[in-house]
Each structure stands twice: as structure tokens, then as C-alpha cells.
């Protein structure tokens, strides 16, 4: 039985990786010169900011070392951070994503207070009722799915157990109040933030 289970799991894994390979090749590494340029510059700026923040030295030697290593890293890995080859929607996407963050913070605080109430309540153990919720999300792109999964995990009371590439979610919810409103408003806001209305 255990052997059987392991085999199905392995074949599932293989299917998974094949799927992700297909997605990767269809997006394709943007070796076109003009399309390659914008992700490179953006990655380079972020890397330089991190270098200055972490080193804290402003003399010529350290700054030139930083510029050289930042350029190397940005050249090798510019298509990791900004995978979309289209330069036009890149900046506005990140701006819209930044407007999603404050709403998420408010939501996290509310949900944290809910779990605090469950923990500190003397009869809290009778109030929790864990179960697995399954639903299908309408989000398409990988980045939106990952953001959605991480947001679900960050709001207490719900943990993402598994996500498939098609958007099938399994979520462990700690009680009825936190499990029922899924997917709900959060999915709509992420769809708006990533331009997938």
C-alpha cells in the first residue's frame, strides 16, 4: 500500500515538473536585445540598492566592486525576477501590486486578532473545528497563484496545503469563520493587482 502510494506520488511529481517545463519554455528566455534590456536595468537597480544597504561604505573602491558584481548578477539572472518579457506593463504591475500590500496588512491584523482570541479563550479548544477546504481559483499566471497561496498562509486561520498549476487549492482552515469566506475578496483583489479581470 505504502509502495503504491509512493509510486503515484512520484508519477505526480514527474507530471508536475513536466508541466512547469512546458510553461517555462513557452514563456521563453527573452534573448531579444530590446526585451532583455528593461528587466536587466530593473534588476541592476534593485541589486545596487541592496548592496549599498548591506555594505554601508561609500568610498570608490567598495562602490566599484558593488557595481561590477551587481552587473554580473543582473546579467545572469535578470529573467528570474521579472519574467514577463513585455516592458510596458512591468512598472504599472508593480505599482498595482504595491497598492495590494496595505489591504493585506489590515486583513492580516484582523485575522491575527481572531486567532489570538481562540488561543487565549478558556474554552477555545471547543471552538476550533479544523477541516480541509477545496476550491478552484480562476487565477491564471504562476506569480498570481503564488501570491494568492502566500496570502492565504499569511492570514491566520488558513494554511495552503497544496496548489496545482491549474489553480486547485487545498486549504487547512482552523474554524468555520476563517474557512468559509474563501476564496472571496482576496482573489478578486489579486486578480485586479495582476491585471486578470
Amino acid at each position: 500500500m505504502a509502495q503504491d502510494n509512493e509510486q503515484t506520488m512520484e508519477s505526480m511529481d514527474r507530471g508536475h515538473s513536466m508541466n512547469s517545463d512546458e510553461v517555462g519554455s513557452s514563456a521563453g528566455p527573452p534573448r531579444n536585445r530590446r526585451l532583455f534590456f528593461y528587466p536587466f536595468i530593473l534588476t541592476f537597480i534593485i541589486m545596487c540598492g541592496t548592496w549599498v544597504l548591506l555594505s554601508g561604505k561609500f568610498d570608490a573602491f567598495h562602490m566599484s566592486l558593488g557595481v561590477i558584481s551587481c552587473a554580473l548578477v543582473a546579467y545572469f539572472s535578470s529573467d528570474f525576477l521579472f519574467s514577463s518579457p513585455k516592458p510596458a506593463g512591468l512598472l504599472s504591475k508593480w505599482v498595482r501590486f504595491a497598492t495590494y500590500i496595505p489591504w493585506l496588512m489590515v486583513e492580516i491584523t484582523k485575522a491575527n486578532l481572531h486567532v489570538m482570541k481562540l488561543v487565549l479563550h478558556p474554552r477555545g479548544m471547543d471552538m476550533i473545528d479544523p477541516k480541509i477546504v477545496k476550491f478552484r481559483s480562476k487565477l491564471k499566471s504562476d506569480l498570481a497563484l503564488v501570491t494568492f497561496a502566500n496570502s492565504i498562509t499569511l492570514t491566520p486561520g488558513t494554511i495552503t496545503v497544496s496548489v496545482s498549476l491549474d489553480g486547485d487549492f487545498k486549504v487547512h482552515a482552523i474554524d468555520k469563520a476563517s474557512g468559509d469566506p474563501l476564496p472571496g475578496e482576496m482573489e478578486q483583489r489579486i486578480a485586479k493587482a495582476f491585471g486578470e479581470e
Binding site: 488561543v119 479544523p130 491566520p156 494554511i159
Partner: peptide
């Protein structure tokens, strides 16, 4: 300390 099993223990541990 209080929650009954490991899945529900992850809720306070990971996020509070």
C-alpha cells in the same frame, strides 16, 4: 502548547 494537533499548531506558530 494548547492546540490539539500539529496542523492547528502551525496556525499560531507560523503567523502570530
Amino acid at each position: 502548547l494548547r492546540f490539539p494537533d500539529f496542523y492547528s499548531r502551525l496556525h499560531p506558530a507560523g503567523k502570530l
